[in-house]
């Protein structure tokens, strides 16, 4: 297949959109996957648990 301007423009306009949707779904699934909840909660609090301030207490 010859790659000309129109091919690329068509690709940009159609597959770009599909890629976008697929990508959004992947990120959303990851973020809301139930098993990940705990990890995110830990990460969220990780900078505040003072472990980095008082490592000797661990």
């Amino acid at each position: 297949m010859e790659v000309d301007h129109n091919t690329l423009v068509a690709f940009a306009k159609s597959w770009g959109l599909f890629y976008l949707i697929a990508f959004a779904i992947v990120v959303l699934v990851y973020v809301f996957w139930p098993k990940n909840r705990k990890k995110f909660d830990d990460a969220k609090k990780s900078i505040l648990d003072d472990k980095d301030d008082k490592p000797w207490q661990q």
Binding site: V27, L28, F40, A43
Partner: peptide, 12 residues
């Protein structure tokens, strides 16, 4: 001295 409101939102 408060955790970020939503860690998930920050990833999105």
């Amino acid at each position: 001295e408060r955790p970020i409101f939503s860690y998930r939102l920050s990833i999105i």
